[in-house]
Design a protein around this nucleic acid. Structure first.
Lengths: 235, 235
DNA sequence: TTTTTTAACTTGTATTTACAAGTTGTTTTG
DNA sequence: CAAAACAACTTGTAAATACAAGTTAAAAAA
């Protein structure tokens, strides 16, 4: 059994409580002293867990008052480390796997620099179309190095989080990343997939997510229809 | 004299060193033990400062190895807490003040919810056009509550950071915020200001920055020409 | 000279303790 | 009954200490 630090365990517990509505917007979390006593860990360790919740925009702390749960953003928050499912809430999001994971070679004109190991390994390629309220909102193309992922092409991804599958089955966790955004005029394929009006632009994102495994980054290209939903970020 | 916590002082020193090239990309910062000895503060306090640098994407830490300075992103990183000047490097950016700060009432259809105090105070309104390599890249409109800002309308903002002016002269610091992004078809005014090609979309951002002063948020609306420069973010 | 082992560094996790500063509820006083 | 003072809570800052786990350089052994 893998050794998870205590501050991470507490963070996960509290994050799930917030996501599940145990604590709603405006509620105070238990105090640092209370969490310390409840979970038999010290207050600096509690603070480390809470700091991660702050960093992810789930809570805001106020000296003398407490840790207040923030409003869950209604817009899609993929400017943070979270995957799409956790950003918007699973209840809204539906996913079509347009292309299930297959082994491919890297595109010759790939937007990201690959490490030598990644280059040699080839990649796992998949495409998804994501719906909010039954309307297509974003189309994403993922390239993952063909490392550490035995039999991933046999797995079902229907309505499952890629991050969760990586975490549970392969012990791969996203620890950071970077992204670039542009507004572009979409090509015909994107226009059809996202059911765009003529002339309607889309948000175009290139994301590189770093993981706990060396030489294993997740590369995503995302086309986002921002007519009804904005991309949301906090910091 | 205002009391700045030690972890914040160290953070500022290191951030300036990185920005000034004292430490370049790929360099190791002094170790935590070394910084602790040099600045006569304890290692947990050093770690707090370094954690903020990590959070802002300036460094990445590697257990057993050290704190490595990251590449300064060439694209414009305004998905973080930094202002535009620090994101891209002052040497590239030129600013025209299209509308110097004036006192105005809030727009009736303002995109953000205002607190009662903000509502009553009215706002300071200003417009800027920002150039990279002498080409207009983004146009931003700022609304600040008309609080805590005596004689701000008499100040010159030419080629100065709004954040710096707020910090130095009014002791106002940005501590967080949120933003939303969309891809839109610009109106004629935006098209002309940013010298867009016909049909070229822009990134549209609404940002609300929270500060150390209660009831004082900075509200920015930004139109961004992402043809040559992407918006960059890391986490 | 090369390989293996060891030592000395690094960051990561965590405990214990203490005081500062902010908020809120209770008690006391007028 | 209202206002002021006090107490009890909260988070913020910081020191001191210790061990775990990763990396790298130096020393020892083959």
């Amino acid at each position: 059994m893998e050794n998870i630090p205590q501050h991470r365990k507490l963070y996960e517990i509290l994050r799930k409580h917030i996501e599940n509505g145990v604590y709603g917007e405006g509620d105070l979390l238990p105090s640092e002293n209370e969490l310390s006593a409840t979970h038999s860990i010290t207050r600096p360790t509690v603070r480390q867990a809470l700091d991660t919740l702050v960093k992810e925009g789930l809570i805001v702390k106020k000296q003398g008052k407490g840790s207040i749960v923030r409003k869950t953003p209604r817009n899609i928050g993929i400017l943070s480390i979270s995957g799409t499912a956790s950003a918007i809430g699973v209840r809204y999001l539906k996913t079509d796997i347009l292309q299930k994971p297959i082994v491919k070679s890297w595109p010759s004109d790939f937007a990201f620099e690959l490490s030598e190991l990644e280059q040699e390994a080839g990649c796992i390629y998949m495409e998804r179309l994501r719906y909010v309220d039954n309307e297509p909102v974003f189309y994403d193309v993922n390239h993952l190095p063909n490392l550490f992922l035995p039999r991933i092409t046999q797995r079902s991804f229907e309505n499952k989080s890629l991050f969760d599958i990586l975490r549970k089955n392969y012990q791969i966790e996203i620890v950071g990343g970077e992204q670039q955004l542009k507004a572009i005029k979409p090509g015909e394929k994107i226009g059809q997939l996202l059911k765009l009006k003529p002339g309607q632009p889309v948000l175009y994102m290139e994301r590189k997510l770093t993981t706990n495994k060396e030489n294993f980054n997740i590369y995503s290209t995302i086309y986002f229809n921002s007519e009804k939903h904005a991309i949301f970020g906090n910091f």
